[in-house]
Amino acid sequence: MRTATHQFKLGNIPVAVSMKDIKNVHLSVHPPEGRVSVSAPLGMAKDTIRVFVISKLGWIKRQQAKLRQQEREAPREFINRESHYFNGERYLLRVVPLAPSQGAAHVQLKHKTMELHIRPDASMESRATVVSEWYRQQLKLAVPSIIAKYQKMMKVEVAEFGIKKMKTKWGTCNPNAKRLWLNLELAKKPPECLEYIVVHEMTHLLEPSHNDRFVALMDKFMPKWRFHKDELNRLPVRHESWGY
């Protein structure tokens, strides 16, 4: 896809503009601080784009205010009795010393406890890696059934999906490759929120932009999607030094 970029300011709000081979203008406000970006059709006049953004200024400021008020998780140290989340439920971490003869480090849920079985001398980074990989595997187990359910309903095909850490999005879709990428953090959220993001990205296989047709398709395939979107936006997000 051909692209060209430029930037302008509305008062103290920087707006990044990407000119692409698309039909419609798409405006986004990104976490955590409300960075504003616009995707516009190639050849659209800069003044036209500016007027469009000005017309959405009230909406932009409301979205920025929501993002800045969203609760942040405290930094995790992966120590005993620290809170961790899975499927929207809170678990207390229990670090279980693992002898060399007991196999590889792993995570196990027991009632409301998340047991991290790991060598006693493991660093915080090693502990974080084991937990992250466990989250990744849980998503890899959960996502295929969601995709299978909605492929039949939507009459589309997902060629593959992947899980990765993403700083500004819950998911992405490449319609040409029929590939979905999902944010690793979704493992911590309620299953309905994960399902909403999968459906959102799959809908992009039918409609690449967030236009009226996209909204109508979401209403058709997941009538309560707005509720799940609001729930996801209310939940605490990972503590991180976000960058772009």
Rank of each mutant, 00 (worst) to 15 (best):
A128F: 07
H239C: 13
S55C: 05
E201W: 04
Q64S: 05
L232N: 07
P41I: 04
S37N: 10
V199N: 00
V38L: 01
E240D: 13
H106R: 08
R136G: 00
D219V: 06
S18A: 15
A16I: 11
P41H: 02
L67R: 04
V95C: 04
R234A: 11
K189Q: 09
K169H: 08
W59I: 03
E195I: 06
E115D: 08
M153C: 15
V199C: 00
A216G: 13
P97Q: 03
R127L: 05
G162A: 12
M19C: 14
S101F: 12
Q108M: 13
E240S: 13
L139T: 06
M222I: 06
I147N: 01
I146Y: 05
L42E: 08
H26D: 13
V36Q: 02
K149Y: 10
L232I: 09
I22D: 01
M19F: 14
T48K: 11
K149C: 12
L194R: 04
H111P: 09
L194F: 01
K169W: 06
A148Q: 14
Q7K: 10
C173K: 02
E195H: 04
K178P: 02
W242Y: 15
L27V: 07
V130Y: 00
K112E: 12
A128T: 08
P100H: 07
V95Q: 07
A16L: 15
M19K: 11
R62Y: 14
N176F: 12
P97I: 03
K152L: 15
T168D: 03
L57R: 12
S209M: 14
S126C: 12
L98T: 01
Q151D: 09
R94I: 11
L194K: 03
K188L: 03
R127N: 01
H210E: 02
E73H: 13
I54E: 15
V29K: 02
I147D: 05
A65D: 15
L116A: 02
F8G: 00
P144W: 03
D121Y: 10
A148E: 15
H228S: 10
E125F: 13
L116M: 06
A148P: 07
T168V: 04
M202F: 00
N176C: 13
L92V: 03
L184S: 04
A104Y: 13
G103T: 06
I22P: 00
P75E: 08
G43Y: 03
S145N: 12
M154E: 03
